[in-house]
Amino acid sequence: MRAVIQRAKEANVRVENEIVGEINRGLVVFIGVEDDDGEEDINYLVRKISNLRIFEDEEDKMNLSVKDVDGAILSISQFTLHADTKKGNRPSFVAAAKPDYADKVYNQFNELLSEQGLRVETGEFGKHMEIDFINDGPVTILIDSKNK
């Protein structure tokens, strides 16, 4: 699994011009799933993301997690995180999981984040989404569960 995590002041996701998920302070997390991703990958990303210390403390040091600042997560499925651009100019997405499996893993990921006491908002899996957010910092982190 791959995750692109962006610290945000506010964020929302729209499907067909309707806001389906919205947060204030927190993280926008784009998640890409491969066919061989499983519980170990899900647990690893949930643990890393929920405890990632990328919010400033009173001394302006990145020392607080999204849980510490009572933040929320806007979770967006994004198969394009597994794009292969090595050959030619048109990306290949063969490494991305099949939709049924990716949706199952994505939902498990979101459920486990919620079990960490985090408010999790989502887009709609497989739909064309428009995401608006204010990247705070900017702070952007990439985590790949296969690269521990």
Rank of each mutant, 00 (worst) to 15 (best):
S75Y: 02
Q6S: 09
N135S: 07
I134C: 13
D103A: 15
V28K: 11
E115H: 14
F133H: 09
D37T: 01
F133I: 09
E121M: 06
Y44N: 05
D70Y: 13
P138C: 07
I141Q: 09
N107C: 05
N107E: 09
I5S: 02
V29S: 00
S114P: 01
M62E: 12
H128G: 01
S75P: 00
N63V: 02
M129P: 00
R25V: 01
Y44M: 01
K86R: 15
V66H: 04
S50L: 07
N51W: 11
R47S: 14
V13Y: 03
E58H: 10
R90M: 10
G71L: 13
D37H: 08
E39L: 11
E10F: 14
D41V: 01
I73K: 04
S145Q: 09
K48I: 02
G123T: 03
Y106F: 15
Y44I: 03
G88T: 11
Y101R: 14
S114Q: 14
N24I: 00
V29I: 12
G137M: 13
G71T: 02
E124P: 00
R119H: 10
K148M: 12
E124T: 14
N63M: 08
L52Y: 10
A95R: 15
Y44K: 03
D57Q: 01
M129L: 13
E121T: 03
S92W: 08
Y101S: 13
A11K: 10
D132Q: 09
Y106G: 10
R90T: 10
I23M: 03
E121N: 06
A97M: 10
L45D: 04
N63T: 07
S77K: 12
G126A: 09
S145H: 02
M1I: 05
Q116P: 04
Y101A: 05
Q78C: 06
E16P: 00
V20L: 05
K67H: 06
G32E: 08
R119G: 00
Y101W: 14
D37R: 06
P99N: 11
V28F: 07
R7N: 07
A97L: 13
L45M: 14
K87F: 02
L81M: 12
V29A: 07
Q108F: 06
S77D: 05
V94H: 13
